[in-house]
Design a protein around this nucleic acid. Structure first.
Lengths: 182, 182
DNA sequence: TTTAATGTACCGACCGGACGGTACAGTAAT
DNA sequence: ATTACTGTACCGTCCGGTCGGTACATTAAA
């Protein structure tokens, strides 16, 4: 892995294809072509399509972890407010044109089993941190609302205007940092 | 369409396959076999796979409309509380082992364009009714939370226990029928 | 009243193309 | 010598869709 640029280029290309054209169009040939790597090169890095999908999901989760760390650095007074951190993760993720979590889409389409890692990760975050501190119902509802918005984007089903989205996100963050009743 | 039993059998089979084995396994042959119809018979009713997917989505939306009507009959005092009706739709939908909205999954995997009808339908319900009456933020958050839970089930990503799900659903309904702050 | 024609619903063998994956010889940097 | 590829040719399977037929019910002319 002396020149691991190709690995990232391949993963970027795969994400881009899924985001733009749908999971069904994410063929090995298409990914190779788009990433500027030969098919042989692709197979060198990811011996099967499943390996590629798994790597996409792994990278997605790594990125989310990085995001959490950055946010904790940037907002030190919210360090231990896991719900607020998560709200900011969703908020920041929504600013990108295409959610990086398209990997989930591709995996679900190809082989739903691949998502078990992601499920466990979410479960960990949700149960161990977010809900532990405060009112379960309140935390759960706020988290699920942010998740719902994210899924709407991911599935390209969003019926919200940019302004509506932003407003709701700000409200969710406000509620996550505050203590008002829903 | 004098004896449309086959049509329904085919749609049922397609849903079952997507729900149990994933969208990628929903091949025409598999659907035909499962529905007890020959491939030729399937193609007679649905000339292309896209037509089948479209029919699945159409039926999904029709069913949701029926559900709304039933709920309005069953809970006449909530007739005009669109948010509460929608909460009950989500609640009732979650009671089935597999959400009927697996059609969405199949469509997204095959051809994301097919979901535009569903998006418009959601938009209509959301903007015209749910949000019209009360506090936008509150309604939106409650709706999105219910949607988030639904998507978790749909994508087989749910990390919530049965009890947690039920509790949250009841809380959402309570909030939708009441006036408390979140 | 027999007969011919028409339409509906369905069967299942088959075809062509796409796709995941293999194989392998060569190359260029480290 | 190892690593990280390129390039190309190829293979077998799977899948969407085609096509020629069948069975049967209804209608309509002779």
């Amino acid at each position: 892995m002396a020149r691991p640029d190709s690995r990232h280029a391949i993963l970027d290309a795969a994400e881009a294809i899924v985001g733009q054209s749908g999971a069904a169009r994410m063929t090995l040939d298409a990914v190779a072509k788009r990433s500027g790597v030969s098919k042989g090169g692709l197979i060198y890095h990811f011996p099967t399509k499943e390996a590629l999908l798994q790597a996409m999901i792994d990278r997605m989760m790594e990125r989310a972890d990085l995001m959490r760390e950055e946010i904790r650095k940037k907002f030190p007074d919210e360090r231990s407010n896991h719900l607020a951190v998560e709200m900011r993760v969703f908020q920041q993720g929504a600013e990108q044109k295409r959610p990086q979590s398209v990997a989930l889409l591709a995996a679900i389409a190809a082989n739903p089993d691949l998502t078990s890692g992601a499920r466990e990760e979410m479960s960990r975050h949700f149960n161990a941190h977010i809900v532990s501190g405060g009112d379960f119902h309140r935390s759960a509802i706020l988290f699920l609302a942010a998740l719902g918005m994210h899924f709407l984007d991911l599935l390209n089903l969003s019926f919200l205007t940019k302004e509506q989205k932003q407003e709701i996100q700000e409200e969710l963050l406000r509620l996550a940092t505050g203590n008002e009743g829903i």
